[in-house]
């Protein structure tokens, strides 16, 4: 009934879309990274000049340091905390779906709206400092101090992302057989033992997925910085993608921006391979 050409037909449409909107622009960007393209003048080949400039660009390394700090703050927290959240809402209890909805709710709010709300809360006379004052703690410079800005932005990302990753873990948890937990109960295992010996090992493919996806989104984050801090104070929340945006669309230095994009691509690729080596053992040959 169904023949090979039916499959090709269905594959053709997304394939063409992928080709036009992903593959061709990527190849074009790789090409542009070896040029001095600035939109107006003809494209000029500059060889490895953009990459050489990148190595000596202190702004790039500072943006990379900020991105790595953000990644270290965000990815482990999102990958681990959302497992616990998923375990909590995986229990058979009355009204659990309401909790699932509540935890998922921040995901539905747009990043810009989230950023605006948290910006208010982080103001010097905002709700966060009010909460601190209840405990007689001096007001914090959430978004105006160099050392506080990245942790503050990470809090917002974690608040917004927990529910999203919880959903993947929830699906993973529901595929783990109940019998394993029952057997563990018979053996007298407690809550933590069950998590360490049953839940975590069996969730490993999901953990791998969550770590990879949250790593990628941490490295790509930029909207929140643009809306909340404009990369400040004094460049301390300027990420690599923020820098790409500035170079490409404010300074029209498309060639250099493409080179930074490829450097970022390579870094994400290496991190994904490392993650795969440690977390995705089942799928390795």
């Amino acid at each position: 009934m169904y023949k090979a050409h039916h499959a090709w037909l269905f594959l053709a449409i997304p394939g063409i879309l992928l080709l036009i909107f992903t593959v061709i622009p990527t190849v074009a960007a790789l090409f542009l990274s070896f040029t001095n393209y600035n939109v107006f003048s003809p494209v000029g080949w500059v060889g490895l000049a953009n990459y050489k400039q990148l190595i000596h660009d202190s702004n790039f390394w500072s943006a990379m340091k900020n991105t790595l700090t953000y990644w270290v703050l965000v990815t482990p927290a999102l990958s681990i905390l959302s497992i616990f959240l998923a375990v909590l809402v995986n229990r058979k209890m009355k009204g659990v779906s309401v909790y699932r909805l509540i935890y998922y709710f921040p995901v539905l709010v747009s990043v810009v709206v989230t950023a605006m709300l948290w910006k208010w809360m982080f103001q010097e006379d905002g709700i966060m400092n009010y909460l601190l004052s209840i405990f007689n703690i001096a007001p914090a410079k959430w978004l105006t101090s160099k050392s506080m800005v990245m942790p503050s932005l990470a809090i917002v990302t974690i608040w917004q992302g927990l529910g999203y990753y919880m959903l993947f873990y929830l699906a993973g948890l529901q595929s783990i057989s109940e019998e394993l937990y029952e057997a563990a109960d018979l053996e007298g295992a407690g809550f933590w033992k069950k998590q360490f010996y049953i839940t975590f090992p069996l969730l490993r493919p999901v953990i791998f997925f969550v770590v990879v996806v949250s790593t990628m989104s941490a490295f790509k984050e930029f909207t929140m910085m643009l809306t909340m801090t404009k990369g400040g104070p004094i460049g301390s929340s300027k990420t690599v993608v923020y820098m790409i945006y500035e170079k490409a669309f404010e300074q029209l230095d498309m060639g250099y921006a493409s080179a930074i994009s490829f450097a970022l691509f390579l870094i994400i690729l290496v991190l994904t391979l490392i993650n795969q080596k440690f977390l995705d053992k089942d799928n390795q040959a």
Binding site: E124, K141, L143, T144, K230
Partner: peptide, 9 residues
């Protein structure tokens, strides 16, 4: 001049 103003936030 408050910090938030200096930082254009």
């Amino acid at each position: 001049i408050p910090d938030e103003v200096v930082l254009d936030q």
